[in-house]
């Protein structure tokens, strides 16, 4: 049986691991390589690494860092941050990324995402969707949550699937870093609408919440950051709990 993936997300900025609340109030959470080594020893299912400063400072993900990480990790690695050309993706995949996560460029240029899926295969392209709930509407934001777009949540997701992304990671900016639970209703809406796998992100705070999100929203994977950085819980603890509750996970 296919297992539900439990994925630590690592956000970084100049080799410093960071974590914020609602995409703001960034605080340092240690060195990136140190965190990577620990997750490698713990044999996590997969890692998502996002350079949160890349898009807004117009720089690229550090390829040497990607290589250094890939040399130590024999698990699927997804990198994101500032990707807006076929060359960017090609370099990242060559450096050791298995998938790339694209947010801002996916909001601005569907044609680029289409070309990326055709060139590298849909398995290599993860659509990243950040949203805030404003007056009962889910509004899509780009540029690490700093820029409001005119995109409509449902339409944007359906378009990304149609273009060919292999999966989507959906992050509630309102929930991010709060530890008070995933936005289950919105995630459920997404999984009902889409046929590709959905990765839940933003707000994971307790084992019960993680169980609820899998059971009620039927997501394929749970991404989380704060719960692993700022509580004593590890991805393995989460999986042991879910396993007791009869959720298929890789132990």
């Amino acid at each position: 049986m296919l297992k539900k993936r439990i994925i630590p997300t690592l956000l970084f900025n100049n080799l410093k691991l960071v974590k914020g609340i609602n995409f703001r109030s960034w605080r340092t959470a240690g060195s990136i390589m140190q965190a990577i080594r620990i997750y490698n020893i713990r044999e996590v299912d997969e890692l998502i690494l996002l350079d949160i400063a890349a898009t807004n400072s117009k720089k690229k993900v550090d390829l040497e860092l990607v290589e250094e990480i890939a040399n130590e990790c024999f698990m699927p690695l997804t990198f994101g941050g500032g990707i807006n050309s076929i060359k960017d993706i090609s370099e990242l995949l060559k450096a050791g990324a298995d998938k790339v996560c694209i947010n801002t460029a996916a909001c601005e240029d569907y044609d680029f995402i289409y070309k990326a899926c055709k060139t590298f295969g849909n398995q290599a392209i993860v659509g990243s969707v950040d949203y805030k709930n404003e007056q009962n509407e889910n509004i899509i934001y780009s540029n690490s949550g700093t820029k409001k777009t005119k995109l409509i949540f449902k339409d944007h997701l359906l378009e990304l699937e149609k273009i060919g992304v292999g999966e989507v990671i959906i992050t509630s900016i309102d929930k991010d870093g709060t530890l008070d639970g995933y936005d289950i209703n919105t995630l459920k809406l997404a999984t009902t609408m889409l046929k590709i796998p959905v990765i839940a992100s933003g707000g994971a705070g307790s084992f019960e919440d993680m169980l609820n999100t899998i059971e009620k929203a039927n997501v394929s994977a749970l991404a989380a950051a704060s719960i692993y950085h700022f509580t004593k819980h590890t991805p393995l603890d989460v999986k042991k709990y879910l396993n007791e509750k009869k959720i298929p996970v890789r132990i």
Binding site: L2, K3, D45, G166, K195
Partner: peptide
């Protein structure tokens, strides 16, 4: 009820 691509850890 099953999604495609088949992505993840399986037995």
């Amino acid at each position: 009820s099953l999604r495609l691509p088949h992505i993840g850890w399986n037995q």
